[in-house]
Design a protein around this nucleic acid. Structure first.
Length: 335
RNA sequence: GGAGAGGUUCCCGAGCGGCCAAAGGGAACAGACUGUAAAUCUGUCGUCAGACGACUUCGGAGGUUCGAAUCCUCCCCUCUCCA
């Protein structure tokens, strides 16, 4: 008869099945970082043998603020995917990032949105410094991974300085500049990176978190920043905003409907060497996933190339000229 | 042939005497997006005018009314059910 009935008839079988369910349940519930650990780390898991960086979750605590509660001990966080509760402490975050095994990992910090009151920023700074220290103590895998400390302090130079100096006391192999591009003006952002340029050590990388547009990158390189990461090239590409050396191209625009040229005639990326603006526009407006992939391929290629050009310009001691050539163009909308 | 429902601005669809150039979607058009919840958000969307406003629209033609997308008459067309 019905397998369910049979199942109910035998107590022993019932018990065995329950045990099996438990195991399966355990497998389903295993956190993602355990999966990556069993795969032998992130590089092996995704077959990518180049440097990778993971974030600590501090930014999600801010951007998904409706779903969390911050205490000195850590952050209680509700999954936006299944609603389950998770508790992230600085120690837990280190454990997870060690399991994942990226080359560069981040301290657990609080990233206050701007504008925030000075009082709040001061309080938040204490938390971030305390969490940085706790993470540093908990972190063990120094040979294989570099743990960066994150400088907070909003738009206040004295808070930034205090934070940077205390982190430098803890001696991290690199320093992240966090809490920018979260609502402040560009002038404030540039003021803070310029200020930290003189505070942070010359011989260690400075990583500006969450920035930004092509012109933001160049402007911040000019202020001593070495590394960036941002959703900008990929998220905007997915929504049809494509960065090029001539400015931003909004590929959904009607003017590209019958434009059979590539996005950029001179670009060597897969997208530009194979497909027309008209076809990409068609894919994007039809919401075809291929359109998103093609625009993303181009934008990533463009960002890489822009950074390559910036490095070369610095090495050849003509960065000022390079800035003068590209800055006026990059923020335009290509017609 | 009989019974019923309906035709609204590019499409779907609400409105059922004045507050209606007409809700709400969609499409279209112009943008946004900064340590990543792909499929989200904002604005425009009859014509002319910078704005007040003016003008033309709710299948067609008449009519009632101070006033009609809304009520009446006839006509045209669609759909459902029964023969």
């Amino acid at each position: 008869g019905d397998p369910l009935d049979r199942h109910a008839e035998s107590g022993a079988e019932d018990h065995a099945a329950e045990h099996c369910d438990e195991e399966r349940h355990h497998l389903y519930m295993r956190p993602g970082h355990e999966l990556i650990r069993s795969a032998g780390g992130l590089h092996k898991f995704i077959s990518w043998n180049r440097p990778m960086l993971t974030d600590s979750g501090g930014f999600q605590v801010m951007s998904l603020s409706a779903l969390r509660k911050i205490t000195p001990e850590g952050v209680q966080f509700r999954s936006h995917i299944d609603g389950s509760l998770h508790f992230f402490s600085p120690e837990k975050v280190m454990e997870i990032q060690e399991a994942i095994g990226a080359d560069i990992i981040m301290s657990f910090d609080e990233c206050p949105p701007l504008p925030s009151s000075r009082q709040y920023l001061e309080k938040s700074l204490k938390l971030t410094l305390n969490w940085a220290e706790r993470g540093k103590i908990a972190f063990k895998n120094h040979e294989k991974q570099a743990l960066f400390g994150i400088v907070q302090g909003g738009t206040y130079e004295d808070l930034r300085q205090k934070c940077a100096e205390e982190l430098m006391q803890m001696d991290f192999p690199g320093y992240s500049i966090g809490g920018l591009a979260v609502g402040e003006s560009k002038e404030d952002m540039f003021r803070i990176t310029a200020f930290l340029n003189d505070v942070l050590p010359q011989d260690k990388p400075r990583y500006l978190m969450g920035v930004g547009t092509p012109s933001d990158l160049l402007n911040n390189i000019a202020r001593g920043v070495d590394m960036f990461d941002c959703v900008m090239p990929t998220r905007n590409a997915r929504k049809g905003s494509i960065f090029t050396r001539h400015g931003k191209m909004i590929i959904k625009a009607a003017r590209y409907k019958e434009d059979f040229r590539p996005i950029d005639e001179e670009c060597g990326c897969y997208t530009c060497t194979h497909f027309s603006r008209a076809y990409i526009r068609h894919l994007i407006t039809m919401n075809e996933i291929l359109g998103m992939r093609l625009t993303t391929i181009h934008s990533l290629w463009f960002y890489q190339e822009l950074m390559q050009m910036a490095r070369r310009a610095i090495l050849e001691d003509r960065f000022e000229d390079f800035l003068a050539e590209y800055l006026p163009v990059l923020d335009r909308i290509v017609d």
